[in-house]
Design a protein around this nucleic acid. Structure first.
Length: 289
DNA sequence: ATCCAGGTTGTCC
DNA sequence: GGACAACATGGA
């Protein structure tokens, strides 16, 4: 077992809780977690390198990078894994439509993580016109080159996500090792606007989704899809419905009139169920007849 | 080799 | 307003 500096934290989940780490950490919302062959996940959240694991009705976790005082980890985990949101209720809302009901039954272990706003914005800028495997590589190289080294396990180094300030001090040529192509200038524009305070990401949490989107779309390379991903995954705005190629196809085919009214406030979660569902069963979107 | 990927931009009408 | 190529990179 990995050496956790402090005693591992055990969180007992209610029996109604369907949290699945595999679904949550591998559904394309975060690109910073890797599955280990001992059944744990390792990822970097802020300054912490964490391991997490699920065990019948429990979430087990530990911090590998620093000592945690008693009682520090639990609220942190509850927050990051969004354990205080009522996902049972969300799945009930999805039940009003047969397709969403099916998607929710299949992917109901997904929680929307509460990631750092800057990290979410930056990674989804990198995500555009790109596939998940390569996005993961870009994020990794971004962190290796511009993040802070936190610790090394089994020869693998873990880095924090670079701050907007550090990236704002770079140039397009400086970002070359990331190999993110035309997205480099977009990352720089975002980093400059965020680090200068021209855009205050925390303030966006408090204002209506559409206004927040308009502000984010003032960044070069941020259109509606990236803005909605930043808001959904970085600011927990569950009404955001980012439309990528997968969701676009699924919506056209399965919801030509859009989602049902009652789902709209949690459309982002429904969208994520659907995303995971159609990625696992792409034949759903094939032409019948 | 051509197509595509959790899109956006610039340009043309 | 909508349509459409171009944009870097790498895997299928």
């Amino acid at each position: 077992m990995l050496q956790t500096i402090s005693k591992p934290t055990e969180l007992v989940l209610p029996d109604t809780e369907r949290l699945s780490l595999a679904q949550t950490l591998d559904c394309g919302q975060s690109f910073r977690w890797t599955f280990q062959n001992d059944g744990t996940w390792i990822g970097v959240v802020g300054k912490r390198v964490l391991w997490v694991k699920e065990e019948k009705g429990k979430l087990l976790a530990g911090c590998l990078s620093r000592a945690e005082t008693d009682g520090e980890m639990e609220p942190f985990l509850r927050e990051y894994f969004d354990l205080d949101t009522d996902y049972q209720k969300i799945q009930r809302l999805c039940g009003s439509n047969p397709v969403l009901k099916e998607a929710a039954a299949f992917a109901g272990g997904i929680h929307i993580l509460r990631q750092e706003p800057w990290e979410a914005l930056c990674t989804f800028i990198l995500s555009q016109n790109n596939n998940i495997k390569r996005i993961t590589g870009l994020v990794e190289r971004l962190c290796e080159n511009f993040g802070e080294p936190i610790l090394t396990i089994d020869g693998r180094k873990y880095f924090s996500f670079p701050t907007a300030e550090v990236l704002a001090s770079q140039t397009e040529e400086g970002l070359a090792p990331v190999r993110c192509g035309f997205r480099a200038k977009y990352v720089l524009d975002a980093a400059k606007k965020v680090s200068s305070g021209k855009i205050d990401l925390d303030a966006l949490r408090e204002i209506p989704t559409q206004e927040a989107m308009d502000i984010l779309m003032g960044i070069k390379g941020v259109g509606p899809k990236v803005a909605q991903c930043a808001l959904l995954f970085g600011m927990h705005k569950l009404d955001c419905l980012p439309r990528d190629v997968w969701i676009g196809r699924a919506m056209d085919r399965l919801f030509p009139e859009g989602f049902p009214q009652e789902v709209l406030p949690i459309a982002g979660v429904a969208q994520q169920y659907l995303f995971h569902y159609v990625r696992c069963y792409p034949e759903i979107l094939e032409d019948e007849k």
